[in-house]
Amino acid sequence: MPEMTYRDALNLALKEEMRRDPSIVVWGEDVALYEGSFKVSRGLLAEFGEERVLDTPISENTIIGVAVGAAMGGLRPVAELMTVNFALLAMDQIIDHMTKIRYMFGGQVNLPMVIRAPGGGGSQLAAQHSQSLETYFMHAPGMRVAYPATPADAKGLLKTAIRDNNPVMFLEHELLYNSKGEVPDDPESLVPFGKCDVKRSGTDITIVAYARMTILALQAAEELAKENISCEVVDLRTLAPLDAETFVASVKKTGRAVVVEECWKTCGLGGEIATRIYDGCFDSLRAPVRRVSGLDVPMPYSRKLEKLCIPQVADIVAVVKETMAAKY
């Protein structure tokens, strides 16, 4: 398998799918001529032309709404939001329209569309450009939410997202774009939605994570292995549908769980995962489920302060050790 970056894997997924299906169109702010703020759409305009790859005005709500209409009209739009932070300007079209239309119209129409949105913190971009809004989307019934951790998953999940007949919020972590990994070159190699990936097997404790937090969890597991703590790292891959079956099975085996989430702790993903674990295998637990979360503060600019707000490998290591040491 060829090695490539998360960015190039996404780019390849777009190209392969656009070659396969002429009804796929791509638009967003600076995606065509400028080739994307993060260069994920590099080369698309050159290969597919201005009929299928279009720059838009800075009108986020309408970027999504036009995609909703185009999907209704028989196309498969892939709309890029320059960053997930700007999704807040588009929440009316995302939540009130995109996720509701199929249901409130009695299932008479499908919306096969994807919203790509880079996000996450860690680049000293301060409060308005560093948010992790994943729970905002998984909270609303009617859409899928994917958030890959590796280049292989990035490619396989984006291809699945594009082929899905439901709206998909496809989140990408800005700090992962340059990360490298092996990626299947078979254009029919897809990663299914609703299937966690056990990225590392272990026996003592389960770490449930997603996106960049998965990478940090794997690094923490490596350190903990040196102290004879065997961690199983479960990568959610899609937040909706949420594959509780896989992480509950893992916790049944290990008896302990830590959830790592980049989002704010309050009403975060970790609370949901913990509850699913309690619902699914309370009797197997040998310690309470713990969360390693983003701090409940607006993201500060200073890199010294910012670091405090985002889970770090050392934080995961510490909470895993505390969980292992807990006596009940």
């Binding site: 009929e51 709500n61 309408t62 185009a70 009209g73 196309l75 739009p77 009316d92």
Partner: peptide
């Protein structure tokens, strides 16, 4: 939602033209 249908109409028009 007041005004919600505007961009959807634009999208349908895009699909028709495309």
């Amino acid at each position: 939602i007041v005004g919600g249908q505007f961009p959807i109409a634009v999208g349908l028009a895009f699909a028709s033209k495309f």
